[in-house]
Simulated assay, not measured.
Amino acid sequence: MGIRYYAYAFDGDLTEQVLSDPMTFVSVDPLADAWGLDPGVGISGTTFEQLISERDMLYLDKAWRHLQVLTAPLGAAMAARPAFRMFEGKVTMHGEGWDPWVRALTPSEVLAIAQDLDDISDAEVRLRLPDSPSVDRDLDVEYAVGYLRRARVFATNLVDDGRGMVYLIG
């Protein structure tokens, strides 16, 4: 199935609670939330429509990696873009699969991220994504841009509502 990205919004007044235990704010079955599956059933009949409101959940499928590359530092001595905090992280691989990466972002962190996401142009996506001979470049860029736009809307809505977020890569 692969490693995917899921983010859940939380109200600003819950920030301390979320920071102390972010996993309590992540669904037990994020893929079911994203794909419209019955929770805990695995692959079953699905609507392929997100069960949770797009103001409350962001699903980036596997595009998180593209957005991570896009916002990461350009070089070893350079700083990452503020938006990198929203995509940073990698799972811990082991014999039985992987352990997810989980991070909580406060409402003030989300503000800086939302402002930075607004500054990323579609042209910058094309410039920053690496070329791969096995991937159609135009489709890859279109895929990344589509999910970048979703991330922008989600972050903007969080700022408007004074909310933070918890994300899981896994």
Rank of each mutant, 00 (worst) to 15 (best):
L139E: 11
N157H: 13
D56S: 13
L74H: 08
R163Q: 05
M57R: 02
N157C: 04
K90I: 01
I113Q: 09
L105V: 12
D138M: 05
Y147G: 02
R81G: 00
V110N: 04
P107I: 10
A77S: 10
W64V: 05
E96K: 15
Q115D: 10
R150S: 11
Q115H: 10
G89W: 01
T47I: 00
A155D: 03
G89H: 09
E142S: 12
Q50P: 01
L74M: 15
A83E: 02
L111D: 10
E109M: 07
A77E: 09
E124D: 00
L111C: 03
P107R: 07
E88L: 13
P133M: 10
V91G: 09
Y59G: 09
D122Q: 11
L67Q: 04
D136Y: 06
Y143F: 15
R55E: 11
V110L: 12
K62N: 13
R128T: 03
L127D: 14
F154K: 02
F48H: 13
R152G: 03
A104L: 08
K90T: 09
A83R: 07
R137Q: 13
W64N: 03
A151I: 00
R81A: 04
L117S: 07
I52W: 01
L117K: 04
T71H: 00
L60E: 00
R150W: 04
L60M: 08
R150F: 07
P130D: 14
S121E: 02
H66R: 06
I52Y: 07
R150H: 09
D61G: 07
Q115W: 05
S134T: 14
D138R: 09
Q68N: 02
L129P: 06
S132P: 03
T46N: 10
K62A: 12
A114D: 02
L105C: 09
A83M: 08
K90Q: 12
L74R: 15
D116W: 06
T156L: 13
V69H: 00
I52R: 09
